[in-house]
């Protein structure tokens, strides 16, 4: 994933983009925590809301894979189903962890 390319598509410089990515990582892990709570409370509505939040942020930054995964999670949770969510969460955590800007120099 080319941060410089994503930054220029958004019209921000690379340093600003890295700051946004760091914030995205922080807020997304917070939202993942809410999804996990939604699962443990068997509350699909809460899981859907948190997935919606991740979807929006990922879409704004151009992280298409995270956007697609969060969108699918949101749609499924809105239908009342949390099946397979633990696996989705693992996938989500891996994708978000891979964004750590410090690994990109």
């Amino acid at each position: 994933m080319d941060f410089n390319d994503l930054a220029s598509r958004l019209g921000v410089d690379e340093e600003d983009f890295k700051e946004l990515v760091e914030l995205f990582v922080t807020t997304t892990f917070s939202d993942i925590g809410k999804i996990k709570k939604g699962i443990s409370d068997n509350n699909p509505a809460d899981a859907a809301a948190a997935s919606h939040s991740i979807k929006g942020a990922a879409g704004n930054l151009g992280f298409d894979e995270i956007f697609s995964l969060a969108r699918d999670m949101e749609m499924q949770a809105k239908k009342g189903s949390l099946d397979g969510f633990n696996s989705y969460i693992k996938d989500l955590e891996n994708k978000v962890s891979a964004l750590n800007p410090s690994m990109r120099g």
């Binding site: 958004l10 600003d16 914030l23 929006g56 704004n60």
Partner: peptide, 13 residues
């Protein structure tokens, strides 16, 4: 916006 990332992106832009 309830998402801080969206707010930060708008604020920076």
């Amino acid at each position: 916006d309830d998402n801080r990332l969206n707010l930060k992106l708008i604020e920076k832009s």
